[in-house]
Structure formats: C-alpha cells, structure tokens
Design a protein around this nucleic acid. Structure first.
Lengths: 241, 241
DNA sequence: CTGTTTTTTGACCGTGCGTCAAAAAGAATT
DNA sequence: AATTCTTTTTGACGCACGGTCAAAAAACAG
C-alpha cells in the first residue's frame, strides 16, 4: 500500500470518527427516530452523500455508535479482570467497570436497547453486525472467565453452569439500568443514585448463587477502594468512607 | 345518555379493539418503525382518517397496545397475589404469572422497551400516558405488597427497603427477558427455554436478599404445582415431574 | 322528501431517508 | 501550463409514509 493510500485511509478513519461523534451527540439528544441526517451532514460539514460513503443506512450508523461504545466498555472490562484478588472481588471489579462506563456514557443503554429490535438489526450491514458481535463476545467472555475460575477454585458452587451465572449478571445489569433510569420509577421507589441500584442488585445476584465470600463475610468497601486505587484511578465517583 | 349514544359508544370501543388487534399483529411482525398505517387501515377496512379519530399519533397507538397488555399482565399479577401460602411462595406465584403472560405474549417486552425512549413517550397523548401509568402502578403495588408483607412476618430481612427488593425483581425479569430472547445469546449460552432462565434468575435474586424459605430449604416444585392447580389451571407449559 | 348534523373518507402535504448524475478536486501525462 | 483521466464529493431529486382536512357519504330530524 502506497504512502498516499495510508494517509487517505487515516483521513477516512478520522472523518468517520468525526461523524460518529456528532451522530452520537444528536442521537442522545433526539433519539433514533428524530436523528436527522441532513442536520448531521450540516454539523460535520459534509454532504449527506458523504455520510453514505461510510454507512449504508441510518441503522448502520447507529450500530456503529453502539459498537464503538461496546469496544470501550470491553476495554474497561478487560482492565477490571486483571485486578488481583479473590474471584468475587474480580467480578466486583467488572461491576465497577460497568459503573465507570455508565458514568462516562449515561445513555449507552438507550442505544443498546434499539439493537434488540429485529427490524433494526436487519437494516444494518453484515460487516457492522459482525463487528458488534465481536465486542459483545469480548464482554461476555471476559466476565464468564471469572465465573469459570470461581468454580475452579471453589468460590462458586458447581451445581450450575458458569454461563448461567454470567447471564444472570448481564440480565440484572441491563434490567437495573433500564428500570432505575426511569424518572417515574425513581420517584416511586425513592432512588437517588441509579448506579447504586445497579451495584446493589449485582451483589444480590452473586449472593443468590452463593458466590463466596458473601456480602456479609467480607469487607467489600475495602475491595472497592483497592479497585479504584489499583485499576480505575479516574473513578472519582466512589466516595471513600 | 341516550340509548343510541350507548350503542355508539360500544361500537366505537369495538372498533378500537379491532384496530388494536390488527395493529398489535403488524407491530409484532414488523416492529414500530415498519408498522405502516396505510396497511393497518386496509387491514381493519377503515380509512386512515378513522384511525386518527382513535389515536393522535403512531406512538399513541403503540402505547395503547402496550397499556392493554399491561392491564392483562396486572390482572394476572393480582390473581397470583391471592395465592395462599408463605410470602416467598406468593412472590413465586407472581413469577408464575410473569411466565404465563410471557407465553401468551411472546413479544410484549419488545413493545415495552420502546416506551423507555423519551422521544417516543412525549409523542403519545397525555391521557394514554396516564392510563399506562395506572397499569404500571398496579403491577408495582401488587408485587411490592408481598415484599412488604414478607418483612412484616419476618421472611425477608428488614435491613433493606421493600421497594429495593421489588425493584430488583422487576429488573431481573426485564433484563432476563431481553438477554434470553436474543438468538445469538441463546446459542452462546446454550439456552433452550428462555422462560426457565427468567424464573431461575428470579429465584437467585430472592435468595440473594435472604427471602425465606430459601431455594434449598423448601420444595418449590410442589409450590409450582399448587400454583398451577389453584390459580393458573390454564398453565399447561409447566411440566409436572 | 328535504334540510341538517354527524361520520367517514382518501387525495394531498410535508418531512426525511436514500440515490445518483453531475460537478469538483486531484493525479497523471504531454 | 494545459489537457486528460480518475477519484471524490455533492445536493437536487424520487419516494415512502405519517398526519390533515375539505368534501363526500351516512345518519338523523322534521
């Protein structure tokens, strides 16, 4: 590949990032339905035709936004999984990564939810679907590896499959985000901080599977401080008691 | 009100139900985005103008579908809550109602998820939003009452608020439905029956809060049989061992 | 049968996604 | 520097669909 081609490719990637930045901003502001591609074209100062050189449909563009966020999330998960500690502490580090991500991208789950609709999914390009699958796979595998290890060292009962545990943690995380982000639910249930709800529920699920050490048997506040100091120094949201 | 007006009102309600029936079918088939109001008008054999005598926008129509389903769900919850037994058995009956509903409306959660988008919500009429709030309130209150009672009789530790427990159960239910319904997840995690995943996760969350009697301390298969026999005789999906 | 009110209709409008012929920019050649 | 060929970019346009409303049809009243 010639030098020129390398430069072209880099410029193309930069333009794609620019488009994604603006598109994400508008998507968060207006939602998918009201995301206007003419406005986006004006914002990035390129024509609509140029947008379509990068993305083959509005859905494709939206999926690209979700995939970029998913990659970032998977990166945080992998950082978290390197935390040195007992298996449940490491899983807690994953939960910590979740929070860190949720704070950086308050609205990621709104975008993620669109992907669950079949009619949306099938309008995105095959290649982008594949790329998203890769990131989703990283997220799952990183988490599941900890559950598998937990069974290996005897912290987590072997009577159930590790994937079931992992899946339940994904479910409680997604579900908690969805319900705790609803303003009416926040009022009804007196929720101050949705992030706390997510973490609390993750803890309950782990306890529910009998993942040692249980909440009552360990000082997880200390674990949290270690996670922050050793893995996520940027996590200023964790209040140290 | 004259006799004629009563008849008119009944006919109007019947037509609205007809529209909702067809709209629900098309919504499930095509998703919100591809739900075509011209096609719907043709299906119900009324003009598009007539549709707009009932619903002030496509979102309004969709919300009406969701609310009708939510009412049905709340009815099942209330039936379930009348089950005679210990508090956790009664909560299990609620989980049972969830399953019964999920089987009758495989795709309810897809519709429900649309409502989480702010841009969707604000396009529906005030009155319909209110009506949906009423049904959502019934669902929550019916469930929460059991958690409150569980604390009163000492089955559920008092160290946490009952609403937090209720909320976590809603979260695990919604989250499990979403993740377990994904075809790729089903393959990745080897899921045969998504319904089982939902129930299993609900059990884990209850155990996680220390809701007595715990899974290991009670014969919940027997409870399930009682629930079916006494409350949901139509639930043929429960295989009796 | 005729005039009045109510109900229903479908042609029409605006919006916004996606396309593609044409213009502009860039590279190569003379 | 001029010309030709190639690549890149553009924005006017086609079209599908949600929503409107004047007019037609139906129902009703006298």
């Amino acid at each position: 590949m010639s030098v020129t081609q390398v430069r072209k490719e880099r410029e193309r990637a930069e333009r794609e990032a620019l488009i994604l930045d603006h598109a994400q901003r508008l998507l968060v502001r207006d939602g998918f339905q009201d995301l206007n591609l003419d406005e986006l074209a004006a914002a990035v100062e390129y024509s609509k035709g140029t947008l379509y050189l990068h993305f083959e449909s509005k859905e494709d563009l939206t999926l690209a936004i979700a995939t970029r966020a998913a990659r970032e999330r998977a990166d945080l998960f992998e950082r978290a999984s390197r935390f040195q500690g007992r298996s449940r502490e490491r899983m807690r580090a994953i939960g910590f990564a979740c929070c860190q991500f949720a704070i950086m991208h308050r609205d990621y789950f709104n975008v993620e939810m669109m992907l669950k609709s079949a009619s949306f999914w099938e309008k995105a390009s095959l290649e982008r679907r594949r790329l998203h699958g890769v990131q989703a796979g990283r997220l799952f595998q990183t988490t599941n590896a900890i559950a598998v290890e937990a069974q290996a060292v005897g912290d987590l009962p072997r009577e159930h499959r590790a994937v079931d545990v992992t899946l339940s943690l994904f479910a409680i995380t997604m579900g908690s985000h969805i319900v705790a982000m609803q303003p009416d639910v926040q009022l009804l249930a007196g929720i101050e901080d949705p992030i706390c709800v997510v973490r609390q529920n993750q803890d309950r699920v782990c306890d529910g599977w009998g993942w040692k050490p249980l909440l009552a048997e360990w000082d997880y506040a200390a674990t949290d401080r270690r996670i922050r100091d050793e893995v996520f120094p940027e996590a200023t949201w964790l209040k140290t008691p």
